[in-house]
């Protein structure tokens, strides 16, 4: 029954999207021509020749920097907000009338795709890196708030009671009973989210946020596909490098 439903859904999708080996085959010459235009990646450093934008390698460092800055600041802002909302969303810390609406709010924030958030912030604020920071921060808040709340909820309640009995107030109990139990997982989740945000903020250029994505889009519009290839390679290298750093950092947190 489940298998039949799955097959039916897949068949429906194939028909709707007009995906077939035949059309893939028809597209092959086009694809190879496209790849051909991208090769070899533009590694020039010369600015004397006339072209709409500077050579990609000259712009790469600044683009990498701005993409990193957007994801760092966005993750940090999101994480700070997520600690506060995560505490308020924990079932063991606040009454139902408080933690329930906050959980719903976090779910709503999460449900918006990050590129849509960026589109809205660009429309509200204008082009530049800041709408990217805000989009990343808001989307991280939704996910990290939920994950942090889960960490707070699984902490041993016995320790909380013991410190309550020692005369600690609410903030002291959060700091000394919950935080030591949750901190490692919280850092681990945050690092994971930072890695995600780096990938996301590279894409946000499509809607006008500064960074690597914006240059990929600019070169594409200028039909400068060899420079597009260079920027894509730079993006891949950056993501792989950060992926490795985060992987080792998270393993040490285990």
């Amino acid at each position: 029954m489940l298998a039949a439903l799955t097959l039916a859904a897949l068949a429906w999708s194939v028909v709707g999207t007009e995906t077939s080996f035949a059309s893939l085959h028809r597209a092959l010459p086009n694809m190879s021509a496209f790849l051909h235009r991208m090769w070899p990646p533009d590694l020039s450093w010369d600015t004397s020749e006339a072209r709409p934008f500077s050579p990609p390698l000259r712009l790469a460092a600044a683009a990498v920097a701005i993409t990193l800055q957007i994801s760092l600041l966005g993750t940090a802002l999101g994480a700070v907000g997520a600690v506060l909302l995560g505490l308020l969303a924990s079932e063991n810390l606040t009454p139902h009338w408080l933690h329930h609406p906050i959980k719903v709010f976090l779910a709503l924030v999460r449900s918006l795709p990050i590129i849509l958030l960026a589109l809205l912030f660009v429309a509200a604020i204008g082009l530049g890196p800041m709408p990217g920071v805000l989009a990343v921060a808001v989307h991280s808040l939704g996910m990290l708030g939920k994950l942090y709340a889960e960490e707070f909820e699984t902490a041993d309640p016995g320790v909380w009671e013991a410190l309550d009995g020692a005369g600690a107030n609410w903030f002291q109990k959060v700091r000394f009973a919950l935080w030591p139990q949750a901190a490692r997982q919280i850092f681990s989740h945050t690092l994971f989210r930072f890695e995600m945000n780096l990938r996301e903020s590279a894409v946000l250029g499509l809607v006008g946020v500064a960074g690597l994505g914006l240059w990929i889009e600019n070169y594409r519009r200028a039909f400068d596909y060899r420079s597009v290839a260079t920027m894509v390679l730079v993006t891949m290298l950056l993501v792989l490098a950060v992926d490795q750093v985060v992987f080792h950092a998270r393993r040490r947190l285990k």
Partner: peptide, 9 residues
């Protein structure tokens, strides 16, 4: 307490 209830870490 019987289970000590110290703060881990």
């Amino acid at each position: 307490y019987q289970q000590f209830r110290l703060v881990p870490r």
